[in-house]
Design a binder for these strands. Structure first.
Lengths: 101, 101
DNA sequence: TTGACTTATCAACATTTCTTGATATAATAG
DNA sequence: CTATTATATCAAGAAATGTTGATAAGTCAA
């Protein structure tokens, strides 16, 4: 069972929302800095994209994975993050159910 | 145009989410403490329902109205709050569009 | 092994959000 | 009018969240 409040909190930071939007474009993929032709984005890409330092990216990715919005997969020395579409869909579905529309 | 991040933030507090759920049941109405047979809930009802002090309720209702999730209508010395279903629907629609589902 | 590279975690600090009690504003009833 | 009731706002403090730099842990290549 998903936690709507927790997911809302994860979505409520502008940077995190931008990261999620970035991950949409890395669904099934083009070229990546770390590893071409693989789904997902690594920490280093997100740093580059938004000009953020590494610990800040790690912090926000932990929030996103903790809410179930992102899944992570280690590949060598990188960790690749992908959108969890199921959680996003379930989130909107649950809100519709809660508010009866 | 709705602000998904702002609405997410409004939804991200457990008490606010409970208040919104309470308002679902006051859509088109039964009896109210302040004024029977009217849509919406007043500040005083929310205080009673959740055992919150008045300023705390005011604070959270302002967050909810500020995000467009709730509309307010003064009636005499009361203010009645109602769910804004349009915003909720538009919120879930926008997320679906952003994440392409 | 060492050295380079990537990510995680920590402590300290900054910022934001939340809560409270006091006070102000506004409407109603008498 | 005054007294009562309902809500808004404010300042102060508490709690939660976000940011940073340093350090730790892990992987890889040579």
């Amino acid at each position: 069972m998903i936690d709507v409040v927790k997911i809302s909190k994860a979505l409520s930071d502008p940077i995190r929302y931008k990261i999620l939007l970035m991950l949409v474009d890395h669904q099934s993929n083009e070229l990546l800095c770390c590893s071409p032709a693989l789904e997902g984005a690594c920490n280093c890409e997100i740093m580059a994209e938004f000009g953020m330092i590494q610990s800040r990216v790690s912090y926000h990715m932990k929030e996103l994975t903790g809410a179930g919005l992102v899944t992570e997969e280690p590949r060598g020395k990188w960790k690749f993050y992908s959108l969890n579409m199921d959680t996003l869909k379930e989130y909107t579905r649950q809100i519709g159910a809660d508010f009866k529309f």
